[in-house]
Write a protein that binds this DNA or RNA. Structure first.
Lengths: 357, 357
DNA sequence: TGAGTTGCGCGAAACGTTTCGGATTGCCAT
DNA sequence: ATGGCAATCCGAAACGTTTCGCGCAACTCA
């Protein structure tokens, strides 16, 4: 394999000089720059990035920990991460935790061994997140979800507000018996979605019976069962709010199993939008997260952290940036059945706008 | 930052000894092994993987080039890749080519600088794929798509056979006017799907007029327009085969725009299955690719290549492994309208099985 | 008892860069 | 002619590992 020495020899200069022109440093004459560049060209030389990393103690690599690649939400944030990283000459090595804290721990430790400059983390539980040891290893920015008493920097979406709006939308349609299928509640995303929803109900003075609160653990199968349970209740809900895309799918399957038409018998509102939502039967109304932006912003924050750590500029203040969600009203939510009886309770029905995408 | 020297000092042994125990080499007494391990524990020492990589000239990293992260098919193969790589102590640095050959080239060159041990590549065009220079840089295994005159190792699915079966399914239902929306035809996946389909038609002595062949470039928007064009023909097709998931979506939108009911007026059969297909309106019949397996198998092949390159065992013969697809019949395909008139042409209608997932 | 063998541990030289300080040159002002 | 000062260029020491070969002690066997 070619080394910097080979090009130095061919260009008849020292390795120091070659290094200088590779890194675009000033203080080397045009003549030599030319010679060196020609030599590199001739040999098709590519600097060994790992040797460089060892020397400068910086790998220009960030790690990204995802709990579940299969979720299209995370695919989108990966897209954002990869793009922004590349634009800044960073590579991303990508890890899947499979929702397993132990695996997550091992992967994090592997990332440290590889001396990544920093990591992006959507933690699977709050223990890892709080681990001071891990925090001391490298700059960390969280995304999508954070522990309740989190101190550090993160980018999340306004789960609380979005869920509150979701509840309001349902209430506005005239629903009184509204259920929720939540995700895991140990982390912010699951919790905030529940809390925002609860607040929405509360503000309308609506009851929120225990039976209408189900934990679907963010999984399709679990949500499927929740849906089944919910709809078999003596007094089933007329609307249900699903806290992520997979669970929405599970619920829809349950409705299909029970031959309960949506939205005629029950309205469903899902968290997470995706291309396919438009083609669902019925077209799904959802709250859409700016997933690409989450990824982009996360690496912006991380790179800033790295820059200040190198002392070159600015300051780093830990912060949680919150990105707005958007309610996309489509066809899976409608006034409750029988519409006639409850219609009088609802004044906002006629004002809701339908989203075309 | 801690080095091997620190633990050597603490354990009162040489760095060579520490290195030996880290790598589990034999020839060091139990007593010293204990001492060293205790020291590592006490210091919370993690070996510097980049120094090691430099020395042993192997990074235990593979690169993965994907044309489009956003496509759930690739998300699944990533899942397979990451899992199999991790099980073998490899990390994967992940690149998005965004369907841009120039970007792909740059990324490949970056991967080489980082001295990845090998790369997994779903090329965006056939030029890059054939580049001898690139092939000489590192072991390469292609997946999903290969150039027509490909020589090397790759894992693909049986696009030809699957598409032929797809055509047969449609024909079996009684369709005579069958259209196809193809992807790009410069690479195997697009081409084979067209060819298999054409063969299927041919075997049934069905015509395949120019007007029924549209290129959707694997993109949703393009396919949307193709769908519009197709259905506005004087004699529109009664069934259409879409060569990937995004294009199926585009077609469905077109049908929605034109208020053409599926499958009553037109049957649609899509390439690529996904969780959401079940909840479509109507439930989509698709040909499903073993995407996770594609990823898994690809790294198996790559790691094997690496092993033989290190001379430790076995031989490497370039090969193309082809994984089977599966036709999942659901509700978006049905006998053509008006069923009565053409029913007599079809004998197989009653024998098709419906897939429950 | 002495030579050969084995097992264990260590020192030091790589791996391919970057970077620091010093050496060389040319030029200008004195 | 001489000293001083930029402007270039170079040698060599790191960076944190692995690994080769050597030294030393303890056995084994005649």
């Amino acid at each position: 394999m070619l080394t910097i020495r080979d090009v130095a020899r061919l260009a008849d200069v020292s390795v120091a000089t070659v290094s200088a022109v590779i890194n675009g440093k000033s203080g080397v004459s045009d003549k030599l720059v030319q010679r060196v560049q020609r030599a590199m060209e001739a040999l098709d030389y590519h600097p060994n990035h790992v040797a460089r990393s060892l020397k400068v103690r910086q790998t220009n690599t960030i790690g990204m920990m995802i709990p579940d690649v299969t979720n299209p939400f995370f695919a989108d944030v990966m897209h954002g991460v990869e793009g922004e990283a590349r634009r800044n000459n960073y590579s991303v090595i990508f890890c899947n935790a499979d929702e397993d804290p132990e695996l997550e721990r091992r992967q994090l430790s592997m990332l440290f061994s590889r001396r990544v400059d920093g990591v992006l983390l959507a933690p699977t539980d709050s223990r890892v997140a709080q681990d001071r040891l891990i925090n001391r290893r490298f700059p960390l920015v969280f995304f999508d979800r954070i522990p309740t008493d989190f101190a550090g920097t993160a980018v999340v979406t306004d789960n609380f507000e979005a869920s509150r709006q979701a509840a309001r939308h349902l209430i506005g349609l005239g629903h009184r018996r509204i259920a929720i299928i939540t995700g895991r509640l140990n982390l912010s995303n699951g919790l905030q979605r529940l809390e925002g929803f609860r607040r929405g109900l509360q503000e309308a003075n609506l009851p929120f019976p225990e039976a209408y609160l189900r934990c679907g653990e963010f999984q399709l199968e679990t949500a499927h069962e929740c849906g089944l349970d919910l709809m078999r209740l003596a007094e089933p809900p007329t609307a249900v709010f699903c806290c992520n895309n997979k669970m929405t799918l599970g619920l829809m399957r349950a409705l299909g199993d029970l031959r309960i038409p949506c939205p005629e018998r029950v309205s469903v509102l899902g968290f997470d939008d995706f291309d396919w939502a438009v083609n669902f039967s019925p077209r799904l109304t959802t709250v859409a997260q700016p997933s690409y932006q989450v990824g982009k912003k996360a690496v912006e924050l991380l790179l800033n952290k790295l820059r200040v750590e190198k002392g070159s500029e600015g300051t780093d203040h830990d912060m949680i940036v919150t990105l707005k969600c958007e309610l996309r009203v489509r066809d899976s939510t409608a006034p409750p059945y029988p519409a006639a009886r409850e219609k009088r309770d609802s004044r906002k029905v006629s004002t809701v706008k339908r989203s075309s995408r």
